[in-house]
């Protein structure tokens, strides 16, 4: 291990040079993700209102469903933060418990989102209905696909935690996946605001 110039209080994930550089590298990846989502948001805004005589968003969006999804994801971001808090206090049990809760909340979010999409398709708003709904499904679907990938990724890390316990390696992986999870909540904040809230109000 190339652990040298750190104080004993440095969190495990920062104790190796590899850990530090991996975390920095992941922040740069998140920068690229922001650029990716910005193109999808730009497309969505440009195609806003181009519903080609089909269903309009205000007819289909419902405050209740959107709020449930928002609070599920917000809470999962919070519990993911708690997991890191316990990891830094070297509590494997606390870490695993809160990560488990995070995954359960993430799965419920995904369930509600899939239910919402199916409902829209039944109401006649599908990917091919109009430019607006194409942009809507690509933007929210890309976010949903990220959530699904995050759940699979974190589940795999959970297995590794069970096998290897808390090491600089596993804690680096947990920390990086937590950054990814919080980032998905950040993207959702903007989807909630720009797509759902403004879609219902305007």
């Amino acid at each position: 291990m190339d652990a040298v110039e750190h104080s004993p209080n440095t969190p495990l994930e920062y104790q190796t040079e590899t850990g530090r550089l991996n975390i920095l590298g992941f922040w740069i990846f998140l920068g690229a993700e922001i650029a990716l989502f910005s193109t999808l948001f730009a497309t969505y805004f440009v195609l806003d209102g181009r519903t080609a005589g089909g269903p309009v968003p205000a007819d289909l969006f419902e405050v209740k469903g959107v709020l449930i999804e928002t609070f599920l994801l917000l809470t999962s971001s919070f519990t993911c933060g708690l997991a890191i808090h316990y990891m830094r206090r070297h509590s494997l049990k606390g870490l695993v418990l809160w990560i488990g809760i995070t995954l359960a909340l993430g799965l419920s979010f995904l369930g509600f989102e899939i239910y919402e999409f199916i409902h829209y398709i039944h109401e006649g708003a599908a990917l091919t209905t109009s430019a607006y709904w194409s942009a809507f499904f690509v933007l929210t679907g890309t976010h949903g696909a990220h959530v699904a990938m995050g759940i699979a990724w974190i589940a795999l890390i959970l297995i590794q935690l069970k096998q290897r316990g808390l090491t600089p390696d596993t804690s680096r992986k947990v920390f990086i996946s937590s950054l990814y999870w919080h980032f998905l909540d950040v993207v959702w904040i903007f989807i909630f605001t720009a797509v759902y809230l403004l879609g219902m109000v305007m």
Binding site: W27, I28, L30, G31, I34, A35, F37
Partner: peptide
């Protein structure tokens, strides 16, 4: 990095 990507966005 995040500020720069915000500018891009």
């Amino acid at each position: 990095t995040i500020l720069y990507s915000l500018f891009i966005a």
